[in-house]
Design a protein around this nucleic acid. Structure first.
Lengths: 211, 211
DNA sequence: AATTATTTTAAATTATCATTTGAAATAATA
DNA sequence: TATTATTTCAAATGATAATTTAAAATAATT
């Protein structure tokens, strides 16, 4: 008959800090103590609200996706397929490079997508598939309706893996490879590069397949 | 005055199994017990021969490189720059996809190159740089002598990150994305795709830069 | 204010591994 | 074969971090 509400808030803070810490460190390296410190909670809170670390990870990932799904997605109809792909790449890169809440959620989302822990299991496929289909459609629009299924998937891999660099490479290493610090301007240039590189790539392999 | 030689062999077996286990799991996830089991040695052997896990990791990585350096590298002079790049990509992919000794060494080498643990420190740069320069030259040959430095690096990232898929993606996940099992034929097709995709990409961004 | 279900806390307990130890086994030499 | 430096082994120790516990604190309700 007593319904306290203060626990809900602690729970939410734990989810948010889990996204932050898990996206910075790997599942293994992220310590429950870290997450709780960031959330301003006692270590026992994780067990109290989520049972264990793995469940917290899973719920935090779903929480990140929920928040991301509110965000706009570039519509294919609005412009040429080429511009849609450019927008898509820029969206990925800019979201992931941003240091706000969205950046955290995006990085955590993509980290699990690209380096699956296997902890998500059931939800993984159904959350990933709709996004994949969107990208596949984008690619098909560029190649043409007769596009080969395998070619589309290869192009998907090429694009996603290029974007990977920003998410899975430690920024200090990325800086070393690029020979300069990661300014917003540089990020933008890199996004532009990946978009143009990929557009040309898609067209080339699309034509070759058909030939 | 007593010089037993049987220890050398145990040491070598430990290095080989370290390459195998570290390339399958991450540094953290690879257990000393695993490595020793594969090597058919007692856990104490790591301490006896290498001091600790970190030193074993470092020595194993250098051991992998030593073995890789014996291997041929496609020469730019032999054919057109386009074919050199094709060869380069095929070499990367085929080496990394092979399930023999070379495959293990290659995967371990590239894993540390792409996701540095920071355990190598000193050797890392000097081992990586010569290989980078080779790829840079290949890219410059395709774009032309006036190629922009940043463009070359962006292209390097694009190529390397596409090849990443095979090394850092769990093969079960890759199979899921591709919708089929990883036959040697499919690997070859993927290598061909990455090469053609990248050649077109390089030309496109190369021209754009100059324009 | 008293009651009580929730929530928080510090400390205790476990689990997982890396590392160490000291004894036993082994291989080279005399 | 006896000696001895190397090597191997099972078991002990230590460190780190997850999980549990039970008591204390708190917020809602009476």
């Amino acid at each position: 008959m007593v319904k306290r509400e203060d626990g809900k808030e602690t729970r939410a803070r734990l989810l948010a800090s889990a996204c932050e810490v898990f996206s910075k460190k790997s599942y293994r390296d992220a310590k429950i103590a870290d997450i709780c410190r960031v959330a301003g909670a006692n270590v026992a809170a994780v067990n109290y609200y989520f049972g264990d670390k793995a469940s917290l990870y899973k719920e935090a990932w779903l929480y990140a996706i929920e928040n991301l799904e509110q965000l706009p997605f570039p519509k294919t109809a609005s412009s040429s397929p080429h511009d849609s792909l450019r927008q898509y790449v820029h969206m990925l890169i800019e979201y992931f490079a941003s240091d706000d809440r969205i950046g955290q959620f995006s990085r955590f989302y993509l980290l699990e997508l690209l380096n699956p822990t296997g902890l998500i299991q059931d939800a993984w496929h159904e959350m990933i598939e709709p996004r994949r289909v969107e990208l596949h459609n984008l690619i098909r629009d560029i190649i043409g309706p007769e596009a080969n299924k395998q070619t589309i998937i290869f192009c998907e891999l090429s694009i996603i893996n290029q974007c990977r660099a920003l998410v899975t490479t430690k920024s200090s290493d990325l800086q070393y490879l690029l020979g300069q610090s990661l300014s917003p301007e540089l990020i933008k240039q890199l996004a532009r590069h990946i978009a143009e590189f990929s557009l040309a790539g898609i067209k080339a392999v699309g034509h070759k397949r058909q030939a």
